[in-house]
């Protein structure tokens, strides 16, 4: 299976950006999400370059139940961490033409990273009050067409309201003088077999309880009625069945680990992945892929110590 995804690599020191095409064949194992990136992370770690990255999976933003998953990875001061999160950011990253964003370096002054349909710019921010600051960011793109991730008070949030990452990743943003990332995009997310995919979505939606929402905009493409967007959950990369399942879901871009009402998660996740990519991967292959990613994750955790 040939699978390629685009990574936007931004160096804030030089305010330059380049696009890396990542991919390759690997005995038919599904490669998706951050599974492409460990060699890049390892290289950055060995060079002692702090970085923060976010990756969408092949199912992210497709509209499947819970397809709002993305994975944050980052390293600084000898510590590596990875966390699965959910929100609109991953989907918009894909609409703007990328599946991964990796940021290194440090901006000279407080700045925002602006990604619009594949075009990247680093914009210095002038406002000091949070309200003015958000207004300034909103002025960059039209309403309803972008997601803004901001760092404030030691946490990352999406559109000013929803938790997106924990203190570690917020710290990485602060360390880089990166106050926000604004992503706006109009590109399509390809689905190889739309008919099969829509049938699966309707079928899986039947598993999910309907419920009223309490905040808006609430969950993005997520099942279940009672929750809002979830903040990042750290990945331990342990070799247990439960942790491997979490790793596999994070690779595909599905934020399902807290949805106990979805049974047989790996089989269903794989069915969605196959419909999206047109592949014909088996569950053992997905598990093997997750096992390999977990092994690489553990190696990164070890290097980080």
């Amino acid at each position: 299976m040939r699978d390629v995804s685009k990574c936007l690599f931004v160096d804030l020191n030089t305010e330059s950006a380049e696009t890396l095409s990542l991919g390759g064949e690997e005995n038919g194992f599904p490669r998706s999400g951050w599974g492409f990136l460990p060699p890049l992370f390892l290289c950055l770690l060995e060079k002692g370059r702090p970085f923060v990255s976010v990756s969408a999976g092949k199912v992210t933003g497709t509209g499947a139940p819970g397809s709002a998953g993305m994975t944050w990875c980052g390293a600084s001061g000898g510590v590596f961490a990875a966390a699965a999160a959910e929100g609109r950011f991953g989907a918009y990253l894909r609409h703007s033409g990328f599946e991964h964003l990796c940021v290194t370096g440090k901006a000279a002054k407080k700045a925002a990273l602006l990604i619009r349909d594949g075009e990247v710019s680093v914009v210095p921010l002038r406002k000091r009050r949070e309200e003015d600051f958000l207004r300034e960011l909103r002025s960059f793109t039209a309403d309803g067409e972008r997601v803004i991730v901001t760092e404030a008070d030691g946490a990352l949030s999406e559109d000013g309201d929803f938790p997106l990452g924990d203190a570690f990743f917020a710290g990485l943003f602060r360390e880089k003088n990166l106050s926000a990332v604004v992503v706006s995009g109009h590109g399509g997310i390809p689905v190889a077999d739309p008919e099969r995919f829509l049938r699966l979505c309707a079928e899986f939606r039947g598993d999910c309880p309907a419920g009223e929402t309490t905040a808006r905009p609430a969950r993005y493409l997520s099942p279940g009625g009672e929750r809002n967007l979830g903040a990042g959950r750290l990945l331990s990369f342990a070799d247990s069945r439960e942790e491997l399942e979490k790793t596999a879901l994070s690779l595909l871009g599905l934020a399902w680990e807290n949805y106990d009402f979805i049974d047989d998660k790996l089989r269903k996740a794989l069915a969605l992945y196959n419909a999206v990519t047109g592949a014909n991967c088996r569950e053992t292959e997905l598990t093997e892929s997750a096992r390999k990613a977990a092994r690489q994750g553990r190696e990164l955790l070890g290097k980080g110590r």
């Binding site: 497709t62 509209g63 590109g187 689905v191 739309p194 829509l198 009223e212 993005y220 493409l221």
Partner: peptide, 25 residues
């Protein structure tokens, strides 16, 4: 409207059905 949380799943899948790819706009 009181039940809508703006999750956007209707939008994503409608565009997929129409255009063959997810293009919410």
């Amino acid at each position: 409207r009181s039940k809508c949380g703006g999750c956007g799943v209707c939008q994503a899948l409608c565009s997929l059905k129409r255009a063959g790819e997810v293009r919410p706009g």
